[in-house]
Design a protein around this nucleic acid. Structure first.
Lengths: 260, 260
DNA sequence: CGTTCGATTGAGGAAGATCAATTAATGTGG
DNA sequence: CCACATTAATTGATCTTCCTCAATCGAACG
């Protein structure tokens, strides 16, 4: 019995885990490559139906019968849960290369609304056809499992952010996440366009819109972000890493010393 | 688990998919049955290694190389994420019949610590062997996919609770969830033993231990729970449904009526 | 060009955190 | 088994953060 794990020789037993999107690890290919490969593989091995969506369109709705998974080929999608008593919660954001609809497998009905936040394209893949293809295309199985695994891991990270970060740090971390996500997709990270209102961001982060607004103003005051002349949904992020540093600074109010 | 959406009769136009019907009776079988079937199926179709764990034991550690999934046959397990800066977060609770380790598939390393909260038993299942068995046992594939799907859906519900419920409701909802979970496993729900300290519960719910303690005291004052003479970790829950009602009461402080 | 929606900013209030003191359980060695 | 040490839980008093309410301003849009 291997009770206590034989961790390598890391200073901390947990450090090597990238948890989000650091390049390292045993996979050498970059995130962008992985996304491209996924799209290519699916496109080649499966019959799929394309659907163009526009901002506000519903990809699928909570309660609707499950039959398809959706691979997001372009655009941005938000996932929204609704409780019976009327509470609404943005529970996830999806980018190019992400899969949608895993939550429907277990119950046969989707558990959330998937709503496009911009013009984009989703590929509809019949779940049964996908499963059938696993037999001849083991890579497809790995790809799908990895996507589900990543989703599980990321959802937990979201919970951790909401539970452990103060408001300002949450907003900064959200911007970092968004910038990193679009960066991984080959888009520029220094100028990003938020597809969400302050209220939506706040909902996703467990904050009110005023708090988000104040946090953004503070970040702008510290020159970690800047609003473009175009409006307040476009913003300039000179240094994404500085946002991560800001999060750390929020956590260490008085004793900045050591570490890192 | 508290969020399943309410649009069963959604007459939506853009559903080219007929409804992929699942096996009859599949939807009707109880949760307890599903768990039993999962354990039976895995036991029969796979070679597995059993491991007895005791409170505090580590099932797997974050950063450790992924190779196995774990099926929890008895006991209770908590999943704990640790951020590089030292923040710790309980991100999940697992019960008999739950799978552990999905988070390791994507990166090849587990993303969290899985720690036993009580004496129990996990079954180690080599992931590669599992995948190999999919070829001849399609039921196994469904089972695993459903488990992952359920995990994704539940993690989102957790996020919603943390983001939308006030402290008292969060604690009440936690107790309801725990009671329901053990109830689904055939254990009595009127007397439950929390395997966690107030601090751990608070961590899981994004609250401080004092807040959890006060919430519990308030619930006890309203006779929704009662402490047993044995100690404060055992408690009596006369009516689980009343806890759910309490959550609703927290949300509707004065005006229950109309929708928006 | 006015209407509407989203964003910003301020003032005041409330929920929950922090600090602190006490009590109850758990564990340990004699 | 008991005295003691240790850890967990409760409760109160105070403080901080974030929410609520409200007014203003800017942008988008018909």
């Amino acid at each position: 019995m291997h009770t206590t794990a034989a961790t390598p020789t890391a200073p901390h037993p947990h450090t090597p885990v990238p948890m989000s999107r650091r390049v390292a690890g045993d996979e050498n290919r970059s995130l962008g490559e992985r996304i491209a490969q996924t799209l290519k593989l699916v496109q080649e091995q499966l019959t799929l139906q394309r659907r163009v969506v526009h901002a506000g369109d519903t990809v699928y709705e909570a309660g609707q019968g499950f039959g398809c998974l959706y691979l997001l080929n372009a655009g941005f999608v938000k996932l929204v849960n609704q409780s019976p008593d009327g509470r609404e919660q943005v529970v996830g954001l999806k980018f190019r290369g992400d899969w949608l609809g895993f939550d429907g497998i277990a119950t046969g009905r989707y558990a959330s609304d998937a709503i496009a936040m911009d013009t984009g394209e989703v590929w509809l893949i019949r779940y049964e056809a996908l499963v059938a293809a696993f037999a001849t295309q083991p890579t497809l199985l790995s790809t799908v499992h990895e996507a589900m695994s990543r989703e599980i891991a990321h959802d937990r990270d979201s919970l951790m952010s909401v539970c452990t970060l103060p408001a300002d740090a949450r907003v900064a971390d959200f911007l970092r996440y968004w910038a990193e996500s679009v960066g991984d997709r080959g888009m520029r990270t220094d100028r990003i366009t938020l597809r969400m209102t302050r209220a939506e961001i706040g909902n996703y982060l467990g904050l009110k819109l005023e708090t988000v607004s104040r946090a953004l103003s503070r970040l702008a005051r510290e020159d970690l972000i800047a609003f473009t002349e175009k409006g307040r949904r476009d913003l300039h992020i000179p240094d994404v890493a500085a946002l991560a540093a800001f999060v750390q600074r929020c956590l260490a109010p008085s004793a900045p010393a050591l570490l890192q």
